[in-house]
Design a protein around this nucleic acid. Structure first.
Length: 144
DNA sequence: GCCAACGTTGGC
DNA sequence: GCCAACGTTGGC
């Protein structure tokens, strides 16, 4: 499956993610988002979106470890985390404004459910976004 | 900074 | 189980 995660760049930016070369995606405290974390499978591809500041998709990541109990709240087994690694930055970002104007992307969760922080992306929408940034597909195929 | 949308909490 | 009050997210 294909996914999108949000992060406020002031809190955790794409650049920080790349420098760390791995992120534990924890701290999710919303059941719907948690359920999406649980559905993520190894090597699933994930769009990385900057919320609040930027409001743009800036890069592509990949799930490197499937859901496990959120280590930041060991006393509460309800919550889950995953691990992801950066695949590649986008040569240009895809802005929220651009998405809102794009006929193919009208049903994307970013618009429909603006507060959800982890969401699935339909395959057609996912690849459309990659086309918008002229993404080099070999970067994906090399890894899969 | 404002506020709409939405999720959670707690009294009844 | 309902719903008012409250808190949070995130676009604008």
């Amino acid at each position: 499956m294909y996914w999108l995660v949000k992060s406020e760049p002031d809190v955790y930016s794409w650049q920080t993610f790349v420098e760390a070369s791995m992120a534990t995606w924890d701290g999710v405290r919303n059941y719907q988002a948690r359920n999406h974390l649980r559905s993520m499978q190894l090597n699933d591809l994930v769009l990385f979106y900057h919320s609040n500041k930027g409001r743009e998709i800036v890069g592509l990541a990949q799930i490197s470890k499937e859901a496990f109990p959120d280590p930041t709240i060991p006393e509460d087994p309800r919550w889950l985390a995953v691990q992801m690694t950066p695949v590649a930055p986008f040569s240009k970002s895809v802005t929220l404004a651009q998405i809102k104007k794009d006929a193919i992307l009208q049903n994307i969760g970013l618009i429909k459910q603006s507060r959800l922080s982890v969401m699935p992306i339909e395959e057609q929408a996912f690849f459309h976004i990659l086309e918008l940034v002229s993404f080099d597909y070999s970067k994906i195929h090399d890894r899969r």
